[in-house]
Amino acid sequence: MPDGAAAPAGARAGVPADAMLEVRDLHAWYGESHVLHGVSLTIPRGEVVTLLGRNGAGKTSTLRAIMGIVPRSAGSIRMEGREILGMAPFRIARLGLGFVPEERGIFASLDVEENLMLPPRVRDGGMGVDEIFRLFPNLKERRRSPGMRLSGGEQQMLAIARILRTGAALLLLDEPTEGLAPVIVRQIGAVIRALKDKGFTILLVEQNFRFAATLADRHYVMEDGRIVDMIPNDALAANMERLHDRLGV
């Protein structure tokens, strides 16, 4: 399947041609407020794709629209060729999407293990609990701690860990490094790289594009609810100035 208009001229050779997720002309509303104005993006299977942009550009809304948890949306979202826009959210997740929300969403009344075991399996091939604990050793030590007792870094790791068990093939990560210490950010970077090596496809929302640059295959830049740019990672250096402009960093 061709990558269509969004296919980058400078895309790496060897990138699989089939799209895991294909978003076309996505609009979304919260009540009267129109927050997405025709977002189009393509996430090829096995790639890490970032969504960059300033606060309020519509990155989180894009993820929430993909998961089907915005009040109203229009356009088209295809997961492995299947239209998911308008489906009940619990059906969307069962097609193999794993979601890590911006606020992390650790359940305070559940302990670490209960949080980890909460999302049901949606597909075969999820990681085993032992494998997950190898990736996140500190979670294993804290498996009986209530969710509300975890540090920010531990919460973030748990939020990522719990979608790895389910067999989800496409992970949507909303600012996994936000507000975390550099040492934790490095740890999370290593985890994301390991997940990529395992063949996960990842859509990563980030403010920290230095972090994103070390992981991603391509970057979409959002502004005012639209995609305004797509930069393959190997063209990042050449486009640095443009990106700085866009992100205002």
């Binding site: 998961m67 089907g68 948890i69 009940a88 959210p89 619990f90 059906r91 969307i92 997740a93 069962r94 979601f99 929300p101 969403g105 359940f107 305070a108 009344s109 559940l110 209960e114 075991m117 909460l118 999302p119 049901p120 949606v122 979608i163 389910t166």
Partner: peptide, 25 residues
Amino acid sequence: TRLGAYLRAATENPVLVQAFGINVP
């Protein structure tokens, strides 16, 4: 129990529990 964990989680944050593939309605 696991079923109870669904219930407690959905009491806290039903939207996210749905986004994990659980039929909250």
